[in-house]
Simulated scan of single mutants.
Amino acid sequence: MRRRHEYRDRREAGTQLGELLRSHEWRDPLVLGLARGGVVVGRAVAEVLDAPLDVAVARKIGAPGQPEFGIGAVTPDGPAYYDDYSLHALGLRPDQLADACEAERAEARRRVAVYQRGRPPRSREGRDVLVVDDGLATGVTARAALRALRRDRPHSLVFAAPVCAPDASAALKGDADEVLCLLAPHGFRSVGQWYADFRQTQDDEVIELLEAP
């Protein structure tokens, strides 16, 4: 039996998120799916809003020996973002993570090249830019993406997701003009727990979604 707040898959979650976002008035909106899973959610949101879809890429920098524990993130260009609290708790300095940072930056650049396929990114200047992901856990990749996108001078910068950890959602408000979450459950443990189907999104699927009319 499905839990009361469980999504069948990313597309269902995106459709529901799009209905929430449709209640707002947007200025020339652009949906940016945060690769990879956020692109699936973003496609559904873009369809509900009748808005164009593009991709944003940020890569998590994991703690040494704990790659799933994100202590920072990096985009293809610009400075890396590190969570000061996590660095202090683990006794780490950014320079100790330089190799991991550059490896993730290289992967971010690879993904942009694969996804864009020679196509220039859609203009963000003067538009309401909606950064969409399948969920918000630590928030490090979302924060890195938002800080990089702010340089593109959007009219507003919004983060939206079907499910968010409450603490991460509150912390992200310093980097987004608005943070919109369908669910922010106190029992949050992971994004995947709120999906019946949370299989990994592949590059081919991202490309197909971005190229769909």
Rank of each mutant, 00 (worst) to 15 (best):
R43Y: 04
R43C: 00
R43H: 11
R43Q: 11
A44C: 00
A44N: 01
V45D: 05
A46E: 02
A46L: 01
A46G: 05
E47F: 08
E47Q: 13
V48A: 07
V48I: 13
D50W: 05
D50Q: 14
D50K: 13
A51F: 02
A51M: 06
P52A: 09
P52F: 04
P52T: 04
P52M: 01
L53A: 02
L53I: 01
D54G: 01
V55K: 04
A56N: 05
A56S: 12
V57L: 09
V57A: 07
V57T: 06
A58R: 06
A58E: 03
R59D: 02
R59A: 08
R59H: 01
K60Q: 13
K60P: 07
I61K: 09
G62W: 04
G62C: 09
A63W: 02
A63R: 00
A63N: 04
A63D: 00
A63L: 13
P64Q: 14
P64S: 15
P64H: 14
P64D: 13
G65L: 10
G65C: 11
Q66Y: 14
Q66F: 14
P67E: 13
P67W: 10
E68L: 03
E68T: 06
E68M: 00
F69R: 05
F69Q: 01
F69A: 06
F69W: 15
F69I: 10
F69H: 08
F69V: 14
I71S: 04
I71P: 05
I71Y: 12
I71D: 14
G72D: 06
G72H: 08
V74N: 07
V74H: 10
V74F: 08
V74I: 15
T75Q: 03
T75C: 15
P76N: 13
P76D: 00
D77I: 08
G78A: 01
G78I: 00
P79S: 05
P79N: 05
P79F: 05
A80H: 04
A80S: 12
Y81N: 02
Y81V: 15
Y82S: 03
D83Y: 06
D84G: 07
D84Y: 04
Y85N: 09
Y85P: 00
S86C: 03
S86F: 07
S86T: 07
L87G: 07
L87R: 11
H88N: 12
H88R: 15
A89P: 00
A89L: 15
A89D: 12
L90C: 03
G91C: 03
G91K: 07
G91Q: 04
L92V: 02
R93A: 13
R93G: 08
P94R: 00
P94N: 03
D95S: 09
D95P: 00
